[in-house]
Amino acid sequence: MGGRRLAAAVHIEHPVSRERLVLEPGTEPEAEVAALITNPAAWEDGELPTFEEESGKDPEQSEEPVTAPVPEPVPEPEPEPESEAAGRSRKRSTAV
């Protein structure tokens, strides 16, 4: 890698193996891990690495699988209106 080193310890989940990682200060993480570290203060130079800089790949050509869009939920049916008799029995008298 091109010398991008961490200035602070970082706890992260590896994007492929899902393994929990603790990267110590001075570590030069691989590009796919470095892309997940979004706090500039974690890096020695105080700047975030760019995807192209770290991997040489175009960010538009992601290796992530394309997923189908999630369908919109179907609205629940309207509740049945109560009968008038049931409605009258629930009314309270306000006469004094």
Rank of each mutant, 00 (worst) to 15 (best):
P59H: 04
P49C: 00
D45V: 08
G26H: 11
S83K: 13
E44K: 05
L48P: 00
S89Q: 15
F51T: 02
P40L: 02
T27H: 06
E72D: 15
P81M: 05
E32R: 10
E80L: 09
E24S: 05
P69I: 01
R20G: 13
H11R: 13
S89W: 14
P73M: 07
L48F: 02
E78H: 03
E47R: 15
E82S: 08
M1W: 09
H11W: 04
G2I: 01
G3V: 06
E19D: 04
L48S: 01
E63K: 12
R90T: 04
A68M: 10
R88M: 15
T27V: 03
P75M: 02
D45S: 04
P15G: 07
P71E: 05
E78D: 15
H14G: 09
A9G: 09
E82F: 05
A68W: 10
E47D: 10
A68G: 08
D45W: 06
V66E: 12
A7S: 13
E76S: 12
K91E: 13
E63M: 08
G3H: 03
E13H: 12
N39K: 11
E78G: 01
E64H: 05
R88L: 13
P69Y: 08
E63D: 14
E28T: 08
P25V: 01
F51I: 00
P79N: 05
E44P: 03
L48G: 00
V22E: 11
E44V: 14
H14N: 07
P81W: 09
E28S: 08
E76I: 07
E84K: 15
I12K: 02
L36P: 00
R5E: 11
V74D: 14
S62W: 05
G87K: 13
E60N: 10
E72Y: 07
T27L: 06
E72T: 10
E19C: 06
T50H: 12
V22A: 13
V10M: 03
E53A: 15
E47A: 10
H11S: 13
V70K: 14
V74M: 11
K57V: 00
A9I: 04
S93G: 15
E63F: 15
S89A: 15
E52K: 01
L6T: 02
A41T: 01
S89L: 14
T94Y: 13
A34Y: 02
A86Q: 07
R4Q: 10
L6W: 02
M1L: 10
T38G: 08
A85P: 01
A9H: 03
